[in-house]
Computed example of a mutant assay.
Amino acid sequence: MWKEYYHASGMYDFDYSLRRLDMDPLIRTNFKERWVDVPVRLDDNDKVVVRVNSEGTTEKPVFTVMSDHDEDQDIIFENIRNIFQWDKDLNDVHQFFQGTELAMLFHRYQGTPIVRDFDLYGSLMKAIIHQQLNMKFAYTLSTRFVQKYGEEVDGSWFYPTPEKVAELEYDDLREMQFSQRKAEYVIDTSRKIANGELDLKQIAKQPNEEVLKTLGKVRGIGPWTVQNWLLFALGRDDLFPAADIGIQNALKKMWNLDEKPAKKDIEKKAEGWSPYRSYAALTLWRSIED
């Protein structure tokens, strides 16, 4: 086993990250000991489980990264650092919002990080499966999907490969309570990825607008799904899903409105939160989660 320590830049609320990660039944977490096990798929398709443990505080974040996989240590550590975005100085984000109407929220919820999903393909599948569903049933479906067609390693679940999903029939997912359309979206998108028509690694290098155009052409992938992928798969800083019901409810509460604000009004207000609109979205979500 190898172990490496890392001191993150600025504030970092790892305990909040654990709470968000724990919402997914597929992710193994421990609040008392403050760790999460991260499934990492290497380029040679080796599957490695990495334990990330917080040993510091929000103000002085310190982490240990541990794995039984003695090879590819630098690659694994870089992967983990990118997932948790430890190089992002959240003090800069905090200071930016002190001059905005979100100042009190950012004071209350300091060091809220963007933690990326563990896998580009898995993140896209989860977004497609979850779209237009309540959270409880959404996680029920994605858990069934992964536990049926993915792989468990040391208690952690890896999403199936696009090649494996491409071989499924729509009825295979219908039997798991997928709608016909959702079954088609999951399998057809996986087939495009498996045959090289969609290259998620290359798409991940594109600017936000290009990603929206590229993925938006795929049947069953709308703006909400692409924005979700940009935020949680790629960890982009400046996204604001104004059509999201949670965002609308958070702003309704903050602005003391009788009904949810209009999307165009939200987008106009959010212009003043650029270039950190993703952090505004996360902090607004957090304000109603509490």
Rank of each mutant, 00 (worst) to 15 (best):
K3I: 09
K3C: 06
Y6L: 12
A8K: 07
S9R: 14
Y12R: 01
F14A: 00
D15H: 07
R20T: 13
L21K: 06
D24L: 03
L26R: 07
T29R: 04
N30W: 09
K32H: 11
W35H: 14
V36D: 04
V36M: 05
D37Q: 09
V38I: 15
V38A: 01
P39D: 08
P39C: 10
V40W: 02
D43H: 13
D43E: 15
D46S: 15
V48P: 05
V50N: 05
R51A: 06
R51E: 01
R51H: 01
G56R: 04
F77N: 03
E78R: 11
N82H: 12
F84I: 02
D87K: 14
N91W: 08
V93L: 03
H94M: 06
Q95E: 12
Q98P: 02
L102N: 09
Q110F: 05
P113N: 03
P113G: 02
D119W: 12
D119Y: 11
D119F: 09
G122C: 04
G122R: 01
M125D: 03
A127V: 09
Q131P: 09
Q132E: 14
M135W: 10
K136S: 06
R144E: 00
R144Y: 02
F145S: 01
Q147I: 07
K148H: 09
V153R: 15
D154S: 13
G155P: 11
Y159E: 06
Y159A: 08
P160D: 03
K164N: 10
V165T: 08
L168G: 11
D172M: 02
E175P: 03
K182M: 03
D188P: 01
D188Q: 07
T189M: 11
K192A: 10
N195V: 06
E197Y: 00
Q202M: 08
N208D: 13
L212E: 11
L215N: 04
L215A: 03
L215K: 05
G216V: 01
G216W: 00
I221N: 03
W224Y: 10
V226E: 04
Q227S: 06
Q227A: 07
N228F: 12
L231D: 04
F232V: 06
F232R: 12
G235V: 04
D238R: 01
F240C: 11
I245M: 15
I245G: 08
N249S: 13
N249E: 15
N256C: 10
E259Q: 15
E259Y: 15
K264F: 13
I266R: 04
I266V: 12
E271Y: 10
G272Q: 14
S274E: 10
A280Y: 09
L282E: 13
L282D: 06
T283W: 00
L284N: 10
R286F: 02
I288N: 07
